[in-house]
């Protein structure tokens, strides 16, 4: 065969590269990505960069203001709390728990939810309909409420809270995946795959799964922000992380008593929760539009 190439200078980026090229175009998304990478770094190495032990109490430095205040010190960048613990170190440890746990929860929920959704999508008739309506009704209840009910049954504690939020997040994944698989199976290219002699398994892995990526990414970012808020909320209500651990919501609730004397104890954890949810949402939105636009040049 005569081998000719008309456009030598053109290169063909992989689908993943396409997404990155498209993602880079949006400056806001890129900024969100930087903030998110900082949080990921903190989640991985936060305990290494923390200057103090988060539970180390220092009675000589109680309620010190942050370093940018006139009477603050550079040793305690974010000041100290009512027991003299370094707020900066506590926030690093708290981010590690809040953010890390949220990511872990969503990974488990996405895996379980997508697998169940695929099974439900491949089922047909009455069984599929029952699964669908069941999850529809569960989805109408806010996840925090479901999580509180599950915690009320299982007892408080971080692991129970994690389990509760995971269980509460699964139905969304199931529902979305099921609807997607159902509509994809009707399409002509699935019939063509069948005529190529592909088994259902292969049709799923090589034809349907690549198209599902966008859906999973969008759903996962939504779920991560929900998980961050729920973990913090349960911590705030003293249903999640126990006193031995540091967690952003729990820090908020502990500093409420001294909120008028030292407002930064409430502001800083709140700001970090906000930044986390904000960056996750921005990156999710950026990824979603990048995935959608990558194929339309």
């Amino acid at each position: 065969m005569q081998r000719f190439n008309h456009y030598q200078e053109e290169y063909y980026p992989s689908p993943l590269m396409h997404v990155w090229i498209e993602f880079k175009r949006s400056h806001i998304a890129l900024a969100g990505f930087v903030i998110l990478s900082i949080f990921i770094f903190i989640a991985l190495f936060g305990d290494l960069i923390a200057p103090f032990d988060p539970s180390q109490q220092n009675t000589n430095a109680i309620l010190l203001p942050p370093s940018w205040e006139p009477n603050g010190t550079i040793i305690h960048i974010f000041g100290t709390d009512s027991l003299g613990r370094d707020v900066f170190s506590r926030i690093l440890y708290a981010c590690q728990i809040t953010f890390g746990v949220s990511i872990l929860i969503v990974m488990v929920a996405a895996f379980v939810g997508v697998s169940l959704g695929v099974v439900a999508g491949l089922l047909s008739g009455l069984r599929s309909s029952i699964v669908n309506h069941l999850f529809d009704s569960i989805m109408a209840i806010p996840t925090l409420l479901i999580a509180i009910i599950i915690v009320a049954i299982l007892g408080t504690g971080l692991s129970n809270a994690m389990l509760a939020i995971t269980l509460a997040l699964i139905p969304q994944f199931v529902h979305q995946t099921r609807t997607f698989v159902k509509t994809e199976l009707q399409k002509d290219y699935v019939m063509l795959d069948k005529l190529d002699g592909a088994s259902r398994r292969r049709i799923f892995f090589s034809s349907i799964l690549p198209g599902m990526l966008e859906l999973i990414v969008v759903q996962a970012t939504l779920a991560i922000s929900i998980a961050i808020i729920d973990i913090s909320a349960l911590g705030f209500l003293n249903l999640g992380a126990t006193t031995g651990m540091t967690e952003l919501g729990q820090m908020l609730s502990q500093s409420l008593d001294v909120a008028y004397v030292s407002p930064w104890l409430v502001t800083l954890p709140g700001l970090f929760i906000f930044l986390m949810v904000f960056s996750v949402n921005i990156v999710g939105e950026g990824l979603r539009s990048a995935l959608r636009n990558r194929l339309k040049l």
């Binding site: 689908p15 399409k187 290219y189 795959d193 592909a198 292969r202 034809s207 690549p210």
Partner: peptide, 15 residues
């Protein structure tokens, strides 16, 4: 719907 939007022509013809 005769072509899968998520697959390139190449990977579609590989199947």
């Amino acid at each position: 719907s005769i072509m899968n939007p998520a697959l390139s022509v190449g990977s579609m013809l590989h199947l």
